[in-house]
Amino acid sequence: MEKPVIATDLELTDRSRQRIAALCARYPTRQSALMPCLWVIQDEHGWVPAAAVPYLVDALGVSEARVHELLTFYTMFRTEKPAKYVLQVCRNISCHLLGAREVIAHLEKRLGIRLGETTPDGRFALAGVECLGACGHGPVLQLGKHFYEQLTPARVDAILESLRRDVVPRADTDRLFEEDR
């Protein structure tokens, strides 16, 4: 059987390649660095392109199946290019008790899409997710690394209005000091 051709067209910055090499050295085995390496690639691209698979097979000495296994098991890894703004709304019990349904209905109305859909211009995607660990601050929405909490229809409008101008509003979980940035 012919050896599969190793694709080399994964575009990664030198910094990302260095981070992957460093992770391989830091973790006790190269295979155990697979998850953080997938994060490095997703952090750079916003998703994990198919070309990442042979690249990781090569760099970490793992099987192709193993990479696919992780990509499909863990819900946060994306194997398709996502919308510019992926709005993930919690619909679990606490947020539900605090009004998540109304928030979701409002988002659906404002964006003109249903949960699980993307706007035709590819800018907004709306997803229902399970508990985000913000239960006392619900209803909550995740965008990127951050949470917007205690949502009301009015707050949702303000967030959407800002995102339409490509200004990401400061999130409730963003408590960094200016000097830390």
């Binding site: 679990n92 019990i93 606490s94 399970e130 508990c131 660990g133 239960c135 006392g136 408590r175």
Partner: peptide
């Protein structure tokens, strides 16, 4: 890996 619905204490501890 705090993810039991209703639980958000570890987040406070680390934050």
């Amino acid at each position: 890996d705090e993810s039991e619905p209703g639980t958000f204490k570890d987040r406070y501890l680390l934050d």
